[in-house]
Design a protein around this nucleic acid. Structure first.
Length: 410
RNA sequence: GUGACUGUAGCUCAGUUGGUUAGAGCCCCGGAUUGUGAUUCCGGCUGUCGUGGGUUCAAGUCCCAUCAGUCACCCCA
């Protein structure tokens, strides 16, 4: 029905029965994180705008798409558009780097980006993600990727592709950028307009281009692997070997570059097999320099984030049936004290009740109980009659204990 | 942010070249029947046809604007 008010563009309500699905999906993500001994972190929705502008990169779209404003005390604030910067901020501010040298955190949270909405791309959206601080070893990379694939599997999301790459150290990246610039300059006339613009500002992003005319040139572009150090190459191979052992399929994607500025080393992305535009379920990578850049001690780190909306779209997860145990019929107010004390006792004994406060007639209540898949109906008038709806067995009970006995013996 | 398409009851849709009080199925509510409170039958409810303008004797049907959604670009989760 038309409402006087409508939801803000790009936002959405989660309604029953979908709330049940969301809850179960979130439970799965919580459980897997706890199984890997990651601890939950929750950070404020609102942060100082500088946190994002200075750390995800001025030029990235993420920082351009922020919901931000100046508040009543002239503070520049923003709704968080991504989680890594807030988590790092909290990590430093809390002193976890001292008390918890190998610090593993995870979150499930809402983020905000002022993009043009589309299916799987809302302005308020939800992410699940993990951040692991304090280990520079490649095994940490393996663990994080294993977590990501474990979650997708647990959510019955099959037919995904893990794209993986190593973008090396910042120095390698600079060298690579120069190499690319040189290469693309030689072919600049054949490039698309957008890519030509990027030649100077951010040649690495040309690799991401979807323009047809760019594809051939991109295919033959130099790949960063050639510039990696011996150790970086060895680490990458170790990573791949581990994935092989775990039977995690992957595709080496030498052109996979991530949108945020702070990445180095391993980067990965998990997409669906369709080539629709919102096909990225999960993306992450190493960011060994961000903690220090943000004023903390030099701390290696790696993490990923996954879009909950997108995972739910792809998930084949079936929600659990959560049926009513006892449907309560009590149509005379004079009996309601008796009725409520039974309800209270039933609930305290972990029974799920449904009380028809509309006081329909008993015949319709029975129909209703059947429709709602209730196991029993308790009819409270002068007597109390409990009936097993499936077997039709029924009994008149005089107190809660007798009711309990009946329920237990069914 | 750019472009294209879509917008009729809670849901899925029909509505012929603009022409009388806008329809169906499902859902919901109630009644009847009933040896399975299943089935069946009967009845009822709900819409300013996304919104606002315009053209016309007449607009759900045409035009413009606007809002929202979908798709592509862009970007990313």
């Amino acid at each position: 029905m038309k409402s006087k008010y409508q939801k803000i563009k790009g936002t959405f309500d989660i309604l029953p029965p979908d709330t049940q699905l969301w809850k179960e999906v979130e439970d799965i993500l919580h459980n897997i994180s706890e199984q890997f001994s990651y601890k939950e972190i929750r950070t404020p929705a609102l942060e100082s705008i500088n946190l994002f502008q200075q750390n995800v990169g001025y030029e990235t779209d993420v920082s351009k798409e922020m919901f931000s404003w100046e508040d009543q005390s002239n503070q520049q604030v923003a709704l968080k558009p991504e989680m890594t910067a807030p988590v790092v901020r909290a990590y430093i501010e809390s002193g976890f780097f001292r008390s918890n040298p190998l610090c593993r955190l995870y979150y499930i949270d809402s983020l905000f980006r002022r993009e043009k909405p589309q299916k799987g791309r809302q302005r308020q959206f939800n992410q699940f993600g993990v951040e692991a601080f304090g280990s520079s070893s490649i095994e940490q990379d393996v663990e994080v990727i294993l977590m990501a694939t474990t979650c997708l599997k647990a959510l019955s999301i099959n037919e995904t592709i893990l794209h993986i790459n190593n973008i090396g150290s910042p120095e390698t990246r600079v060298k690579y950028e120069q190499l690319l610039k040189k290469y693309f300059s030689q072919n600049s006339k054949a490039l698309s307009g957008l890519s030509q613009k990027r030649l100077d500002s951010n040649p690495i992003r040309i690799l991401d281009s979807k323009e047809k005319e760019d594809q051939l040139i991109i295919q033959n572009a130099p790949i960063i692997k050639e510039l990696l150090t011996v150790k970086e190459k060895a680490d990458f191979n170790t990573l791949l070997t581990n994935l092989d052992t775990l039977h995690i399929q992957y595709e080496e994607s030498p052109h996979l570059v991530r949108g945020l500025d702070y990445y180095n080393g391993t980067t990965f992305e998990i997409t669906t097999q369709s080539d629709k535009s919102q096909n990225a379920l999960c993306g992450g990578g190493r960011y060994d320099f961000l903690v220090e850049q943000m004023g903390g001690p030099s701390t290696p780190a790696i993490g990923f984030a996954a879009g909950i909306e997108r995972m739910i779209i792809e998930s084949k997860h079936q929600i659990k049936q959560n049926n009513i145990d006892v449907y309560i019929s009590c149509n005379e107010s004079i009996n309601s004290p008796k009725c409520f004390s039974l309800i209270k006792n039933l609930v305290e004994n972990d029974y799920k009740v449904f009380f028809d406060t509309n006081k329909k007639n008993v015949k319709n209540q029975i129909k209703d109980a059947v429709k709602r898949n209730a196991s029993f109906i308790l009819i409270i008038d002068q007597n109390m009659t409990i009936k097993n709806i499936k077997s039709n067995e029924e009994s008149i009970v005089s107190d809660f204990q007798q009711l309990l006995n009946f329920l237990k013996t069914q």
